[in-house]
């Protein structure tokens, strides 16, 4: 598959009173053209910061990208002058955020907020961009789009607002859509509709998607490949099918085990013991060692690199050392 995006060694730090916390610590993975990559992990593992770092939207202070590269079309986005980076945002790469309720500006109509993006990148006049914006509202299946164009965000439901966000993100036919927990803040029934819509639009428009979620069910439904993050680092990467059938990192196994299964009666759902470590106080050796059930002595001493135990698979676990490298 042709690569669209190559992320290497991406590191983003946040300045705190106790020192610099690495929210994203040397993250690297590829996104192929037309591919959907799921980025999975617990809250606070650095998924969203990774997404914001790719678009260089981390606010300084306190955040700062300190290392790494993101290659697209032979250019390193991290080194692009700000003016050229603005042409990438919303045009080549766009993003749908988790909170549809607060991500739209309350004092402008929904239509205007989409129109503005189109006018900015496609050099269209007011009338032309308005027509295109109405078309986008229709594409995300908002009923009566001409009328809804003039609605303010507070006149729409959460699901409708997320559709507006998606319409805005797709309005310039981006080659990569980053969807940061696009359905998490919505009602369960609406969640399914939004995922359905994203699947359909992806099919039609053929863009790549970086889907960020903590919901493995959503990943199973949408992603071709999965990247699992823990405490700021990639711990496992695998094609979707083999990840579920044969997880190769104890953290991924723990995540799988904690999904309730139909037809199975359990007193208690298995959980991963402990909490995600504070990025300022990572355990020595492997960053998962303090919570790992399969820990060996080496895990406490040295941080494992990413091993490749099988074709297309990566695991940051000493237990996979030397197997099929």
């Amino acid at each position: 598959m042709e690569k669209l995006l190559e992320i290497r060694g991406l590191t983003t730090e946040f300045v705190t009173s106790e020192g610099a916390a690495k929210a994203v610590d040397g993250v690297g993975f590829d996104i192929g053209a037309g591919e959907t990559v799921g980025l999975v992990g617990e809250s606070g593992c650095g998924k969203s910061v990774t997404a914001l770092s790719i678009m260089r939207l981390v606010q300084y202070p306190p955040g700062r990208i300190t290392a790494g590269s993101v290659m697209m079309d032979g250019r390193d986005l991290m080194k692009l002058p700000e003016k050229q980076m603005r042409r990438v945002r919303g045009n080549d790469i766009s993003i749908v955020f988790q909170e549809p309720l607060t991500s739209l500006n309350p004092v402008f109509t929904c239509g205007e907020q989409i129109r503005e993006t189109i006018a900015l990148h496609q050099k269209m006049g007011r009338r032309e961009s308005r027509l295109k914006a109405v078309e986008m509202l229709r594409l995300v299946r908002i009923p009566d789009p001409e009328k809804r164009y003039d609605n303010y965000p507070h006149q729409m439901s959460g699901g409708m607002r997320q559709r507006v966000m998606i319409a805005m993100a797709l309005s310039c036919q981006p080659r990569l859509l980053i969807a940061d927990e696009p359905s998490t803040a919505l009602d369960v029934s609406v969640q399914a509709q939004i995922i359905e819509l994203l699947l359909d639009l992806k099919e039609r428009m053929g863009m790549s998607v970086l889907l960020i979620t903590h919901d493995l069910a959503v990943v199973a439904q949408m992603a071709d490949r999965v990247v699992v993050m823990y405490a700021g680092a990639v711990v496992e990467e695998a094609p979707i099918d083999s990840l579920f059938s044969d997880p190769m990192h104890p953290y991924t196994e723990g995540l799988m085990a904690s999904i309730p299964k139909l037809g199975e009666r359990l007193e208690r759902l298995p959980v991963i013991p402990g909490n995600v470590p504070d990025p300022l106080r990572l355990p020595s050796g492997c960053r998962f060692s303090d919570r790992c059930t399969k820990r060996i002595p080496k895990c406490l001493i040295e941080e494992p690199p990413l091993f490749s135990p099988a074709a297309g698979r990566l695991s940051r676990c000493w237990l996979r050392e030397g197997i099929g490298r």
Binding site: R86, V88, G90, F97, E99, T102, S103, N105, P106
Partner: peptide, 28 residues
């Protein structure tokens, strides 16, 4: 606010982010 991040994510120049998206809300 989140919508300021959205405005930046669209690729708007900082001047529009401040004078259009932020100013009107801050003026209220």
């Amino acid at each position: 606010e989140d919508y300021i991040r959205t405005a930046r994510a669209k690729g708007l120049p900082e001047r529009s982010v401040l004078l259009k998206h932020a100013f009107r809300n801050a003026a209220i």
